[in-house]
Design a protein around this nucleic acid. Structure first.
Lengths: 226, 226
DNA sequence: CGATCGTTCTGAACGTGTTCATTTCCTCTT
DNA sequence: AAGAGGAAATGAACACGTTCAGAACGATCG
């Protein structure tokens, strides 16, 4: 429940103001939605001037970037107990994925806009941008832990690529989740269950010598278009 | 090269004005990019008032919807000769996919914004919305033709889902293409080549009795989260 | 011809994200 | 204590997307 700190956390006056603006913004986003929240409203509620809000966040989108960092840290924290106690690939992956959905659930309402801006390659927010690199890499590392801590037999060539692939998979699930309006996001949960099963099965298949050519072809594709 | 008509095409005065605005808008989008093109500039260049532009297109985004329809029709046209002459699944799919990339290439620069708005579930433009339903269904039908006209052996249960799956695949490729800045979009082309290969192989595999349980599991997942 | 009515068109006005010249605040130096 | 200089904060101003009350247009009917 404690606020995660993203930027270097000297508690100068400025850092306090910055934090206050961010808290206020996320609160308003959650309650009213992104488009309905004006920068003026954020500034007012945070007791700063409009210009001052822009002194700390160069654009409204920048606030989303901060949101990324925030939920990512929460996701890490929520995943840790899963990874400490579960040892099959399937259970570990399922745990991490459900933790993800738990983490972002409060923001489902404004998650759409979130991905909206994220999909634009020109935006510093899109998942492959330099600005997102840190979060992306940490997130990928998390999926690396999912694999490495599991007792599954995974061919080395696949193991090297798997974290990236699972990260991509996880983005796909989030994309599905954004469009999911079923009660309690049941469809997304179901999809996670079933797709995790499928992935575990596929990885088991991949270790079969008969599958070697297919596996090699798939990995080659990934390598050549990286 | 003739302009594709989307709306009922009575050539009344209004239809002409509408067309003029759309042509101007697409031209400006192509040349300057989306954000850099103002509604005022479109109106001015099309010799109409700002208000009049909004009489025909209720928002700037609506112009993107029109763009969808346009490129979709061009894609259909470009795909026809492929489907008429090629008979293997691989060749047909590759033909249709390359035709797609050919069609949208001139707009690569503003395609980002295109998908930006498309990714927002609240937008009428996102691929799963009611407003996009027509284009989406027609597009899915195209992939149905790719499969049906091919001489590949495809299990019936898979055949029923394949058009939708291939449409989804095609969206993925477009997403990749958007982020692709390699010369002549070489990476996207390569990805199409290799992924089409892989898909053809997978479909061949799917017909193997040994694969039945896996195939059933995958299809079940799709069915239950539809 | 004139009246009527729906279509087409206009431009002023509003709210928003963003910028920027300027002011206020704080800390350190002498 | 005074001043210098940077950090923090201000609010007016701008450009843009969008809305709207109404004007102009044009076809149809008496």
């Amino acid at each position: 429940m404690t606020a995660a700190r993203v930027s270097p956390a000297k508690t100068t006056k400025g850092e306090e103001t910055r934090a206050r603006i961010l808290e206020t913004a996320l609160e308003l986003f959650r309650d009213r939605g992104y488009d309905e929240t004006t920068m003026r409203a954020i500034a007012a509620q945070a007791h700063v001037s409009l210009g001052n809000a822009y002194y700390y966040f160069t654009s409204k989108e920048t606030l989303i970037q901060a949101f990324y960092g925030r939920t990512h840290e929460e996701h890490l924290a929520a995943s840790a107990p899963m990874l400490a106690t579960r040892h099959t690939l399937k259970a570990r992956l399922a745990g991490v994925m459900h933790a993800k959905l738990d983490t972002i659930e409060p923001y489902h309402r404004f998650a759409g806009v979130l991905f909206k801006t994220a999909a634009d390659p020109a935006s510093p927010l899109h998942p492959f941008s330099a600005e997102s690199a840190q979060v992306r890499e940490e997130s990928t590392r998390l999926f690396g832990e999912v694999v490495d801590g599991a007792d599954a037999r995974v061919p080395d060539d696949l193991r090297a690529e798997l974290p990236r692939l699972l990260w991509l998979y996880h983005m796909g699930i989030v994309l599905f989740w954004i469009h999911d309006n079923s009660p309690k996001r049941a469809r997304s949960r179901k999809l996670v269950e079933m797709s995790v099963d499928l992935i575990a099965t596929l990885i088991a298949f991949a270790a079969n010598p008969l599958m070697r050519p297919l596996r090699k072809a798939a990995l080659k594709m990934i390598a050549e278009t990286k």
